[in-house]
């Protein structure tokens, strides 16, 4: 009961902030112009993407080297743990590099930016895609004794999940459940933010709002149906 009270309290506070915030925005006469920040912003995003892409490649090489080592005892366990963590690092870094490069390319295409930024963004996207494409192939080096699916297999992700044991699935489930909840909250927040931005900048973000609503509707329906039909 105390838990519900606290939740209702948080909802009421959130609703009041939203209501009065919206009133202030509607009443005020201010404009948001982000164009002066486009060039430095693009440079920062692209630099971050480049660092992440290089880092993922570095991790890729380090996993290959670790997999070649012939170790035993505690050292072997420690090396296996390092490979596992390096693999997660490389996956995350290459995914973030792709996302940041995409953001940079969008900035370059939608605002007036030097051509080299667009070209560099394209090169980074291609490089990051290659890294994220070849990363799963490392699993064969990391776990040669396991019967893993080929990365060229059309159902690679599905088959990889099938060959994962209960412990690995337990780890994935924990991560995915947290991600699902975080993503729902963040996307809901993004809708509110886009609404405020549309009003404050006089530039309608309705298209983006509908896209996010569509994503939320699809992913939540998929999740609820997958647990409902079991």
């Amino acid at each position: 009961m105390k838990k519900y009270g606290s939740l209702i309290g948080q909802l009421v506070i959130g609703a009041l902030i939203g209501f009065f915030g919206m009133l202030a925005v509607l009443d005020g006469d201010f404009r948001i112009d982000l164009s002066p920040y486009a060039y430095p912003g693009n440079l920062i995003i692209l630099a971050a993407a480049a660092v992440l892409a290089v880092f993922s490649a570095y991790r890729y090489v380090s996993i290959r080297n670790l997999a070649k080592q012939d170790l035993s005892g505690e050292e072997e366990d420690a090396a296996e743990g390092r490979m596992y963590r390096h693999y997660a690092d490389a996956s995350l870094a290459s995914t973030l590099a792709i996302l940041f490069s995409l953001a940079s390319m969008s900035l370059s295409l939608l605002t007036t930016q030097p051509l080299w930024l667009l070209i560099f963004g394209l090169v980074l996207i291609a490089f990051s895609f290659i890294i994220s494409g070849i990363l799963p192939g490392l699993m064969k080096n990391m776990y040669p004794e396991r019967d893993l699916p080929s990365i060229t297999d059309k159902k690679y992700a599905e088959k990889l999940l099938n060959v994962s044991d209960d412990g690995e699935k337990h780890i994935m489930l924990g991560g995915l459940y947290k991600t699902h909840i975080t993503m729902n909250s963040l996307l809901l927040g993004a809708i509110v933010l886009l609404l405020f931005y549309s009003i404050a900048s006089d530039s309608s973000q309705l298209f983006s709002i509908f896209i996010i609503v569509g994503i939320l509707a699809i992913t939540n329906t998929q999740y609820q149906f997958s647990i409902r039909n079991k």
Partner: peptide, 15 residues
């Protein structure tokens, strides 16, 4: 070690 046990039991070392 854990890696060897995992190999023999055909499970992952993480498990």
């Amino acid at each position: 070690n854990q890696t060897e046990l995992a190999k023999r039991a055909k499970i992952s070392r993480q498990t």
